Simulated assay, not measured.
Amino acid sequence: MPVSVDWTELLHTFEFVSLGQPHEHEAVLCRKSGEFLWHTDLEEDIEAWPDDADDEKKYLSIPHKKELDLGKPLVFEFARQFLPDEFNEIRRIFDRRGAYARFKDLLQRKKALDRWYDFEAKATEAALREWCEVNGITIEHGATPAPEPDRR
Rank of each mutant, 00 (worst) to 15 (best):
V3P: 05
W7P: 02
T8F: 11
E9D: 14
E9K: 11
L10Q: 08
L10D: 08
L10G: 07
T13C: 13
H25S: 05
V28L: 08
K32P: 00
K32W: 01
G34W: 08
G34Q: 06
E35L: 11
W38R: 15
H39Q: 11
H39D: 06
L42Q: 12
E43V: 15
I46N: 08
A48N: 15
W49V: 10
D51G: 13
D52I: 10
K58M: 07
K58A: 12
Y59N: 04
L60G: 06
S61G: 03
P63K: 05
H64N: 02
K65S: 08
K65D: 03
E67I: 01
L68V: 03
L68R: 02
K72C: 00
L74R: 08
V75L: 01
F76S: 00
E77Y: 00
F78R: 02
A79S: 07
Q81A: 11
Q81G: 08
P84L: 06
E86L: 14
E86H: 15
F87Y: 15
F87G: 00
R92F: 11
I93C: 04
D95N: 14
R96H: 12
R97P: 11
F103W: 12
F103P: 08
K104H: 14
Q108T: 15
Q108N: 15
K110W: 01
A112Y: 03
L113P: 01
L113K: 15
D114V: 07
F119C: 04
E120G: 06
E120R: 12
E120Y: 14
A123W: 00
E125Y: 01
A126S: 14
C132V: 10
E133K: 15
V134T: 14
I137W: 02
H141F: 07
A143V: 08
T144I: 09
T144M: 09
P145Q: 06
P145M: 05
P147I: 09
R152E: 09
